[in-house]
Simulated assay, not measured.
Amino acid sequence: MTPDKIALVQDSFRKVVPIAGLAADIFYDRLFETTPEVRSLFPADMAEQKGKLVQMLAIAVNGLTKLDEIVPAVEGLGRRHGGYGVTPAHYDAVGAALLHMLGQGLGEAFTPKVEAAWAETYALLAGVMIAAQEKAAA
């Protein structure tokens, strides 16, 4: 990722932080609407899970300038998700829900350049998670 793309992701995420609760609601509402089969992978009470989502996003976004430091945590997340029943196919739905949430939360600030930077960020991190999950399953 280029420094410009990293800056776009980090700057736009700072705009999401004040509406983190709403953003998490939008994310999970969209995920469960488009991929209802994943709902059973989550607890009935989503409050803690929504907090974890925002926390992990913050760690990932803030760590983009030092990927080597966050890769072990991202790999661990991928391995844990495999244990929860997440499949590599689910990552596309999660990425789409993330971009939807950002679009809703950022409004006009969600420009095509910001969207592309987030899509690249998600693809990078999801790729690390999937590889770790597949390696753990092998």
Score class of each variant (00 low, 15 high):
Tyr91Asn: 00
Gly107His: 10
Phe27Trp: 08
Glu69Ile: 04
Asn62Tyr: 00
Glu108His: 08
Glu33Trp: 03
Ala109Ile: 01
Pro72Ile: 08
Leu98Ile: 10
Val74His: 04
His81Ile: 11
Ala93Gly: 08
Ala96Asn: 10
Thr87Phe: 00
Gln55Ala: 15
Lys52Tyr: 06
Ser40Val: 14
Gly95Asp: 01
Arg80Thr: 12
Leu102Val: 03
Val38His: 06
Thr111Tyr: 08
Gly107Asn: 10
Asp92Pro: 00
Pro36Asp: 08
Ala60Met: 14
Tyr84Met: 11
Leu67Arg: 06
Pro88Ser: 09
Thr34Leu: 11
Val71Ala: 03
Glu69Gly: 03
Ala96Val: 14
Leu102Gly: 07
Asp25Gln: 08
Arg30Ser: 11
Ala97Tyr: 01
His100Val: 00
Met56Val: 12
Leu64Ile: 05
Phe110Met: 14
Thr65Trp: 01
Gly78Arg: 07
Pro112Gln: 03
Pro112Trp: 06
Ala44Met: 08
Phe42Tyr: 12
Glu48His: 09
Tyr28Phe: 15
Ala60Asp: 00
Leu31Lys: 07
Asp92His: 09
Pro43Met: 04
Glu75Val: 05
Ala44Phe: 09
Glu75Met: 13
Asp68His: 11
Leu31Arg: 06
Ala60Cys: 11
Thr35Met: 05
Pro43Val: 10
Gly85His: 02
Pro88Ile: 05
Val114Pro: 02
Arg79Asn: 01
Lys113Gln: 15
Ala47His: 07
Gln55His: 13
Thr35Ala: 15
Val54Arg: 02
Ile26Ser: 02
Leu64Thr: 05
Pro72Thr: 13
Glu115Asp: 10
Phe27Lys: 09
Thr111Lys: 06
Val114Tyr: 02
His100Lys: 10
Asp68Gln: 13
Ile59Met: 15
Tyr84Trp: 10
Val38Thr: 15
Asp25Asn: 14
Pro36Thr: 09
Tyr84Leu: 14
Leu31His: 01
Arg79Ile: 15
